[in-house]
């Protein structure tokens, strides 16, 4: 079982790596990060703040685009194009397929994000003339971005387990946007009260709490991220990802392939 998971994950990684789209995306992200110091010139005095905000935004955005498009592509495309037939006619359980895909994607994203992060650190070092002790916070921000990507990948796989590639991508992206406003949703719920308040509050627990994993503004100002937050975010992301994958397995396990 573990050998099969590793094989599926490795093949997923190989597929992603051979996809030209991926290189274009990573290239654009790096370009955006590299261009950030130029923007900094415009806003004198806040070069580094601007740079960090923009760089982290670029990494999370491109990471999510990769997670969603490659994620929905890799799973629902296999169903749509029936490449899955020859895999599932082998001693591969459906849940192994889902989990293997997820692991392969996570590995792909880890490599991509590391590339983008390396570029980001080079740019930060350039702007602020060397790295400083406070820049450890940037690593924390990157770690939390990684958590967001883990969650988004699991969601992308969940949606592809029952929907077409385009719908899966659209659903996932909607979840990403809403997930960034979970705290605003709760604020709104607290303000409006009544049944619609409860409804919004309930919904806010269904979408991933990505807003809480976004600390770009803080770290841009050199503020540390509390350990408790890192811990809670980690637990939340892992729970959410496992829940999404379990739901994907539940759906996929009973589904007729087309």
């Amino acid at each position: 079982m573990r050998a099969r998971l590793a094989l599926i994950a490795a093949n997923t990684f190989r597929e992603a790596v051979r996809d030209r789209v991926l290189y274009n995306l990573v290239f654009f992200a790096l370009l955006m990060v590299a261009a950030a110091p130029l923007f900094g010139v415009i806003s004198i005095g806040v070069e580094k703040i601007f740079m960090v905000n923009l760089g982290l935004a670029a990494i999370v955005l491109f990471g999510v685009v990769i997670a969603i498009f490659v994620g929905t592509g890799l799973v629902s495309k296999e169903i749509e194009k029936r490449t899955l037939y020859t895999v599932l006619a082998r001693p591969v359980a459906r849940w192994e397929f889902i989990l293997g895909k997820y692991l392969g994607l996570a590995a792909t994203l880890a490599v991509n994000t590391s590339c983008m992060a390396a570029g980001f650190f080079v740019a930060v070092a350039y702007v602020s003339v060397g790295l400083h002790a406070a820049d450890v916070n940037l690593l924390v921000a990157l770690y939390l971005i990684g958590l967001q990507l883990l969650v988004m990948t699991a969601l992308a796989i969940l949606f592809s387990s029952f929907s077409t590639p385009i719908f899966s991508a659209a659903f996932s992206f909607a979840m990403f946007v809403i997930g960034n406003f979970v705290e605003d949703m709760r604020g709104f719920a607290a303000m409006s009260g009544g049944p619609e308040g409860w409804l919004v509050r309930g919904l806010s627990y269904l979408v991933p709490n990505l807003g809480a994993m976004n600390v770009a503004a803080q770290v841009a100002h050199g503020q540390p991220v509390p350990g408790a937050l890192i811990l809670a975010d980690t637990a939340n992301a892992l729970f959410y990802a496992v829940a999404a994958l379990a739901a994907a397995v539940l759906i996929f396990e009973r589904r007729d392939l087309k």
């Binding site: 979970v182 705290e183 709760r186 806010s204 627990y205 991933p208 709490n209 809480a212 509390p226 408790a228 937050l229 809670a232 975010d233 637990a235 939340n236 892992l238 729970f239 959410y240 496992v242 829940a243 379990a246």
Partner: peptide, 17 residues
């Protein structure tokens, strides 16, 4: 189990932030 965990940690995060 994990949905419960996710909801609980999401609630904790709400408190924390």
């Amino acid at each position: 189990l994990s949905a419960a965990g996710a909801a609980y940690t999401s609630y904790r995060l709400e408190r924390m932030r």
